[in-house]
């Protein structure tokens, strides 16, 4: 059974991973210095923030929701973290610790707002988080008086620049977040409920659960991830700014969807999300190294997003077929295909 599960996982994840490998091979051949260790380090650094945000976004999208506020909340969290860390009354160690807590807490609180409003008044998360997008941005501008905050303690910046055998520490943080997310989805009651609610919320309710609780928690987790991303941002760039992160929500959604997570919920994985974020990072880096212009690069990136999702669709179908072949033959008198036809449904 273990072997079958691993096989299943490989099949499910390999498609998008294959696309990534092909992309890497193509760029290695075509773009000078793409395949250098230094460049790999750069790419890993560059995808870290989007990866962490996308992990949070994956939870929300698996529930059939969306969080448009991540970019603004990121800005707000950096401002809160930045103001604490530059407070001269605190020793550097305390400042860093409180700053990390402050950023994470800010993200979580925004998540509480998103989740509770969605669930208490049954409003679609698209609208609620659109509201949060403005609230958080406004709050960030208000409390910072639209100033960029900089000059963080050296210890803090050093972590942002550190690498271990060429792997940036901030990427290791992102990777840890991905693996934690994967563990939660695959092995915990919470993860099980996320998939179940994403697939059929009414069935979950009628099974004696309160889906709202899980949905609120998912938004809080998403907000918390944004808080973590804010810390990584500050480590990497040594600034906190109320205007950063514009459009980050779209990058996160793109990474999640390229990674094979269904926008209608219930289907998807964290490893897919990591691969999705990697594809976007590799694409951005590789096209630039090829010397492609700004506008062409933007167009190609857009096209690749769409193509990746189309490929994923075909791969999912191919997998569905192969899964029948993998499974032991069903009992003769019960051919199990009664309702799997592509008949139109409401």
């Amino acid at each position: 059974m273990r072997v079958k599960q691993i096989l299943y996982l490989l099949l499910r994840e390999a498609g998008i991973g294959l696309a990534l490998i092909l992309m890497v091979i193509a760029f290695s051949a075509a773009a000078p210095r793409f395949a250098s260790m230094a460049n790999v380090t750069n790419i890993l650094t560059q995808i870290s923030i989007n990866t962490v945000i996308s992990v949070g976004m994956t939870f929300v999208i698996l529930l059939g929701g969306i969080d448009l506020s991540v970019g603004s909340v990121l800005a707000l969290a950096t401002i809160v973290g930045g103001m604490i860390i530059t407070n001269e009354n605190l020793s550097p160690g305390t400042a860093i610790l409180l700053s990390v807590l402050g950023s994470a807490l800010t993200g979580c609180l925004c998540g509480v707002f998103n989740g509770v409003v969605c669930e208490r008044w049954k409003i679609h998360s698209f609208i609620v988080t659109l509201g949060m997008l403005n609230i958080a941005r406004g709050a960030a501008l208000q409390i910072s008086n639209s100033r960029t905050i900089s000059e963080f303690p050296d210890a803090f910046n050093d972590v942002g620049a550190a690498t271990i055998f060429g792997v940036p520490v901030i990427f290791l943080i992102a990777l840890a977040v991905v693996l934690a997310g994967r563990f939660i989805l695959a092995r915990t009651v919470f993860g099980r409920m996320i998939y179940a609610i994403g697939n059929n919320e009414e069935a979950v309710r009628l099974s004696g659960h309160d889906p709202s609780v899980y949905k609120v928690v998912a938004f809080i987790v998403c907000g918390g991830m944004v808080g973590v991303a804010a810390i990584i941002y500050m480590m990497r760039l040594n600034i906190a700014s109320p205007i950063l992160g514009v459009g980050f929500e779209l990058n996160a959604i793109a990474a999640v969807v390229i990674g094979g997570t269904s926008m209608s919920g219930g289907k998807g994985s964290m490893i897919g999300t990591l691969l999705g974020a990697s594809i976007m990072g590799v694409l951005n880096n590789g096209l630039l190294l090829l010397g492609m212009g700004d506008f062409a690069r933007q167009m190609v990136t857009g096209l690749i997003i769409v193509v990746a999702v189309i490929i994923d669709k075909y791969r999912a179908q191919a997998f569905l077929r192969s899964s029948y072949e993998l499974a032991p033959a069903p009992p003769r008198e019960e051919p199990h295909l009664r309702d799997t036809g592509p008949g139109p449904r409401v």
């Binding site: 179940a196 059929n200 009414e202 219930g266």
Partner: peptide
């Protein structure tokens, strides 16, 4: 629609 989660 209400009793089962078909994809699980």
């Amino acid at each position: 629609a209400q009793g089962l989660i078909l994809a699980m």
